[in-house]
Design a binder for these strands. Sequence first.
DNA 1: CTTAAAAATTAAGATACCTTAAGAAATGCA
DNA 2: TGCATTTCTTAAGGTATCTTAATTTTTAAG
Lengths: 172, 172
Amino acid sequence: MDNIKIRKRKQVAKGETLLSHGDIATYAYRVESGCLKSYVIDNSGKEHILQFAPEGWLISDVDSFTNNKPTVIFIEAIENSEVSFIGQEDYRDFSRLDKDVLIEMSKKYRNNMIATHKRIIALLSATAEERYVEFTETYPTLVQRLPLKLIASYIGITPEYLSDLRRKIAKK
Amino acid sequence: MDNIKIRKRKQVAKGETLLSHGDIATYAYRVESGCLKSYVIDNSGKEHILQFAPEGWLISDVDSFTNNKPTVIFIEAIENSEVSFIGQEDYRDFSRLDKDVLIEMSKKYRNNMIATHKRIIALLSATAEERYVEFTETYPTLVQRLPLKLIASYIGITPEYLSDLRRKIAKK
DNA sequence: CTTAAAAATTAAGATACCTTAAGAAATGCA
DNA sequence: TGCATTTCTTAAGGTATCTTAATTTTTAAG
């Protein structure tokens, strides 16, 4: 799903939204520079981050993109970024794809699955503090780069509580 | 990853374990009858269910199976079951697979990804009560079939608290 | 530089969910 | 049918995490 053909590119300003709740994900995006996030908004209006996508990452709502149904998520630039577009057309019919492309794609799906499973394990079985430490170990560069409130949202806690945790950790 | 060739089958008694923390997942299992679960055990000894696998489902630790590394999960029969075995060998080298098999596999990975993403959204943004209701709507047959304590474990709460929630829901 | 905006901290009170423990109900096997 | 086992419920007290709100610190725009 990566290096297939020359694609349309676009500059996206920090704060700009590429996909909103209710839209159909006509595109997946490859981040060429900068960083995007995907998130949901819950019943009480709070935002929960699903994914960060720095350079080289893909971001979309796979369900919406694949099945052409309205999405429940948002995708937004958290830095000034450049993205390239991947259209649905190319992935409508798998049988038309080259075998190597299929293999590439399978591996990407599989890697995503593995990462997503890890996150579920963390959410089910680790404390907030453990999840924060795990995040800093898994994504050290993102920790430097992103505001803490976004990391708090990703690991499933409030920024205030993350602040408490950091103080507690520092005291050790 | 499904209907590829005749595979070895085995009866598994309720309570029997097919994969333990530290093992390498030499096999994936297809459940022919009965039901299995996969789970992790957290630092304080509590069990958290990752997946239920009734008839027709596959279950394994994809990371361990794919990358031949020790697993962190357990797989265990929760009913007397029959499973068939899928070996690592067949999936070591994607380029040797038929194109249709690859397509099948991609779709399975993709569907799993989509389902797993949904679960993350639920864990991040829904209350315990909302997650329980969503579970009953998504897996009505499993609700009939499984003890509540297993469902509680899957949605990330204690059985006692699920009991409270059910009483609260019934009162409405 | 200066200043407005965004991010991070701190603290106090609130709540969702957990722990423990005990009893009631349901299930399965002899 | 009866007993043992597992499951489910109930309740009281506890803890992790949240809410609100005010203050400080950092960042970025002019």
